[in-house]
Design a protein around this nucleic acid. Sequence first.
DNA 1: AATCCGTGGAC
DNA 2: TGTCCAAGGAT
Length: 297
Amino acid sequence: MSAATDPDRGGLDRPQVVGRVNDWFALNARDLPWRRSTPWGVLVSEFMLQQTPVARVLVPWAAWMERWPTPDDLATEPPGAAVAAWGRLGYPRRALRLHQAATAIATEHGGQVPDDLDALLALPGVGRYTAAAIASFAFGGRAVVLDTNVRRVLARIEDGQQFPSASATAAEWRRGEQWLPDDDATAARWAASAMELGAVVCTARSPRCEQCPVAELCRWRTLGHPAHDGPPRKGQAWQGTDRQCRGVLLDLVRQHPDGVAVEALLEVWHDRGQAERSLAGLLADGLAHQAGPMVTL
DNA sequence: AATCCGTGGAC
DNA sequence: TGTCCAAGGAT
């Protein structure tokens, strides 16, 4: 069966799409600083970019790399320094995991970020996406890089759907393998270009189809941009949650490098019981530490 | 598999 | 103004 008639591909010529998107990327790639950095710089950027937009990462990433240019530099310092430097990027446990990853790289990999997918996957805070991203972006390797952008791009081009499912399925990872060009260089380029397309053109809210290099090949566009019809995509609750409470508490600790009294800390949240529970969680997670009546990072 | 885990910008 | 969503990972 030819590629043009294979129903699994929706009549899509995948190599043609890859070629067009890669050509588009060659002319339109953003000049992001981690794209001209070291493997460590790439790793740091990937941690920071987990659920955090590029625009908010640029400044903290530069400061981080200035202060800790290598994994050894970070591993030498206490975890609290990483949490402090993380600032308001969100999900501060990522700072802890980044410190743990740096420590593992220092002790188990001679201070060099590994280029092997399995070795990367074994690092704290590195999952399937991040391992593939580092292998591909930092080392030019051939790996399936499947993030929210790529998932949305493929859902639209090939499935004709506005949005992919809530989380990546085994079928999507298999399909990602089928999309992957044979040679390392083209595969690495595709990994970056597909993500870039999703990030700046094929966006979730307002896709810029007029700027898309594969608009005439896109099934979603051909079908007239049908709205999402699957199960409603539920947003995360926020008001009054432990997450909000933890955020408030940790922010106060962050603002006081010399420590905050437990009593003063618990007073900033209206629900005493929830504040106590949240503080206990932060302490258990290692995001905060208590010495007598005082709490520090 | 479903939930939890921060923060801020865009609309 | 409130909702949505952003280069996910761990449990």
